[in-house]
Design a protein around this nucleic acid. Structure first.
Lengths: 181, 181
DNA sequence: CTTTTTTAGTTAGGCTCCTAATTATAAGCC
DNA sequence: GGCTTATAATTAGGAGCCTAACTAAAAAAG
């Protein structure tokens, strides 16, 4: 999800040379990316300590049976869709998870093209041992904010997310840029 | 910076099974990551259209001479530090940028271990042609927020960033988690 | 039925990033 | 001077992501 972490000081400086630039927008944007990056890195470090990556973690989460009798996803295609990666990528993730004994592939009796991916006891133990710490970390990150501030944050981020979704649809630059006119 | 994009619906559902979980914190955290991811993807798409990646873009930004006579960085080591990547990674980035004619490597007379990396005219043209659209995109993303909302957002994100920095320092989980007690 | 189309999953090859080991040079110490 | 340590950059090998091409099986069309 978050990677790279360019150092944006230089970018901000360069930005000042652009007359048509909206300074508060740039500042908000850079803060958003920097903050997510920091937060993400905290969690990623925790993941790495458990031998996980974002992709591996997502797969395990999707495979957990949350008491309903069925996990969120079980075939590679479902997993890829819900994880937001391609099927090819999911094949690779399942490959390494299977190699490490965290999941198993079982072929479907009715449709021989399909597979069913399941958590092994080892995988189940790993993810259940990992999650409490994960949730504690996320809680710690947001802990400086009051309940009201959290609501405000979610609301403001929601506006940006909505705008990003609009811009992602109208893919060329021009229409998105002109959306405020 | 942002990649992967796990679909957190399942995660949120799973989270409900954890009694010690702080729901508003999880929600805020997930919103933060999802929003940055969406915003990041919009910009990354724009970068790709220009034949750039986050890493390549950062290098070019660092190499721009912003009228001061000297760019932010010029040796691979400086570039790596300011870009937040390893020197090995920077070597690879410079390799492909040099291959594409965007930058040049010149050896230092005094210290033969050192190199000086410079933008070629082609690289300079590319980044200068790219930036206006980049800034317009970031402005569009934040456009739904009023000036006051932008200030609030920056303030709230700042609190989280500060907390993340604290947690990144106290690296093991336990101390960070207990920081509120 | 046979042929075409669709679907599930994988393979192949590329990119960006990483860590760890390596090469070459410079600097400090005896 | 000669040895050790530190520094600049690179190389080697791996992980996770991508797109595009491929294989196998099921479904649809004739």
């Amino acid at each position: 999800m978050l990677k790279d972490l360019p150092r944006y000081e230089c970018l901000l400086e360069a930005a000042k040379q652009f007359p048509d630039l909206d300074p508060s927008a740039s500042e908000a944007y850079l803060h958003l990316l920097r903050t997510s990056d920091e937060a993400f890195n905290v969690l990623t470090t925790h993941l790495h300590q458990a031998g996980l990556s974002q992709g591996r973690f997502t797969v395990l989460m999707l495979l957990i049976d949350k008491g309903t009798g069925t996990p969120c996803a079980s075939t590679p295609a479902e997993l890829a869709d819900k994880a937001g990666v391609t099927r090819a990528t999911m094949t690779g993730l399942i490959d390494t998870l299977e190699r490490d004994g965290m999941v198993s592939r079982d072929s479907d009796r009715d449709d021989r093209r399909m597979l069913s991916v399941k958590l092994t006891p080892k995988g189940e133990a790993l993810i259940h041992g990992y999650l409490p710490g994960h949730f504690k970390l996320t809680a710690s990150l947001v802990q400086p904010l009051t309940e009201n501030e959290r609501k405000t944050l979610v609301r403001l981020l929601g506006k940006i997310m909505q705008q990003a979704a609009i811009m992602a649809d109208t893919n060329p630059i021009a229409p998105a840029v002109l959306s405020e006119s």
